[in-house]
Design a protein around this nucleic acid. Structure first.
Length: 393
RNA sequence: GGCGACGUGGCCGAGUGGCUGAGGCAAGGGCCUGCAAAGCCCUGUACCCGGGUUCGAUUCCCGGCGUCGCCUCCA
């Protein structure tokens, strides 16, 4: 199959071995799952389904960032322990994903479970001479990563200028280079702290994914995913520190999903223009929500509007009607069995073909729309997209 | 400023080198109806601008303009 690779800026063949190693950046569980999260993870879910369909074994790891600033801030605001807040929101997220019929991922490790791995990982980077310790903090030395910026397409000098202009943490006198980023940092008084060789503290933002990917999947992974907003700095930093620690290529293929907008702006927690999955589920069939997500291409930015759900409710209804009609026909006349199964396979193959072309889910949905209208069997094709048509839910 | 995406009828949104435009919403007309609602039928000189390639471009290429996203809170 072919997929767009962020690092190479082109649609390229994606031909992993029999066992595919996949890592996607998960959520920071301080608020409910919104449409943007769902769009991202359902994209990877469809990819995973097609890889399995092609005969691959897929190990997919999706972390949970339960040690991070926004989580601490929200816990502070609510007056609860950050891990209690995280556990609750994580459960809501998993319930949303299950309702949308997402496959179980192979592992969903929490950052808080990885402190020992993170300390070990930082040790590896320091031993390589690519990180340094100042005042209880560990910084990655950007000058040791000549390829830094290659993922996002930004040059070192450029990033430097921009970081200065934008007032990143460039004025920190402890850093040798304004772009150096934190691997380990001292905690504030009301933040959790773990002992380490460099003093008590907590991990930097990017380090958990590197440590977890290494722990769960090994030095080199086939595909790393996440929202497009993570390309820089998160994934850029992840790549730099991982390759520094292991000396191996970190990721063979980078895949990023476009951000979802609402009211002309990116949907985001800080803007508050969110559509939450659990609220949507109160009003609409979860499979209609899934259809509303996959009728968009993962690399095209799109905007949420209220007509989406009504349209996809009807689409789901049409697909279900097509299946039950076919079932009835089959029951009445078993001689038709073979013919219908052939129709099913043809639709399935057409959908496979669309998915293999840079995960063209809109094209796949259109094919099933047409097949349903023409009275052909669509259940296998719908199942490949993760759309459950049985009336049991 | 750099990088990326996008710019299709009132709105949303597919799609295509020519055979005139998926679909949805809105709007107008009609059928039906005691009235209304629902339903059904009909109605639309579209592809940001300027160059180029071409017999021919909305579709390909170049350059503008505009919108959105990323550029250390973010899926």
């Amino acid at each position: 199959m072919r997929l767009y690779d962020t690092a190479r800026r082109a649609v390229v063949p994606f031909e992993p071995g029999p066992h595919v190693l996949m890592y996607t950046c998960g959520i920071t569980p301080y608020d409910a799952t919104h449409l943007g999260h769902a769009a991202t993870f359902i994209s990877y879910d469809v990819l995973q389904r097609r890889l399995i369909d092609r005969g691959h074994r897929v190990s997919c790891v999706r972390n949970v960032t339960d040690v991070d600033d926004p989580l601490f801030a929200k816990a502070r605001e609510l007056g609860v322990h950050y891990l209690d807040l995280a556990a609750g929101e994580e459960a809501r997220f998993e319930a949303d994903m299950a309702a949308l019929n997402a496959l179980e991922v192979t592992a969903r490790p929490r950052a808080s479970s990885a402190i020992a791995d993170i300390r070990g990982f930082i040790g590896m980077v320091i031993e390589r001479g690519d990180a340094y310790v100042v005042n209880g903090a560990v910084y990655f030395d950007i000058s040791c990563a000549p390829r830094f910026g290659s993922l996002s397409g930004l040059g070192i000098d450029e990033m430097m200028d921009l970081a200065r202009q934008r007032g990143g943490d460039v004025d920190n006198p402890d850093k040798r280079n304004p772009l150096d980023f934190v691997l380990w940092q001292p905690s504030r008084d009301d933040e959790p702290a773990w002992d380490s060789l460099w003093g008590p503290g907590r991990p930097g933002w990017h380090i958990e994914c590197s440590a977890l990917a290494l722990r769960e999947l090994g030095t080199t992974i086939d595909l790393h995913g996440g929202g497009a907003d993570l390309i820089f700095p998160h994934h850029e930093c992840e790549m730099a520190q991982s390759e520094a620690a292991t000396g191996e290529v970190f990721v063979r293929h980078w895949m990023h999903t476009a951000l979802v907008a609402k009211d002309g702006e990116k949907m985001s927690k800080s803007l508050g223009n969110l559509v939450f999955i659990d609220q949507l589920r109160e009003q609409w069939d979860a499979m209609a929500i899934r259809l509303a997500l996959i009728e968009h291409h993962y690399r095209t930015e799109w905007e949420w509007d209220d007509s989406l759900m009504e349209r996809n409710r009807r689409r789901l209804w049409a697909w279900r009607a097509a299946v039950s009609e076919q079932d009835r026909a089959l029951g009445d006349d078993t001689d038709n069995d073979g013919v219908n199964e052939v129709g099913n396979d043809a639709v399935l193959d057409a959908v496979r073909d669309r998915l293999d072309d840079d995960l063209d889910t809109p094209g796949a949905v259109a094919i099933i729309d047409e097949a349903a209208a023409a009275g052909r069997r669509i259940d296998s094709a719908a199942a490949l997209l993760g759309v459950r048509l049985a009336a049991t839910d």
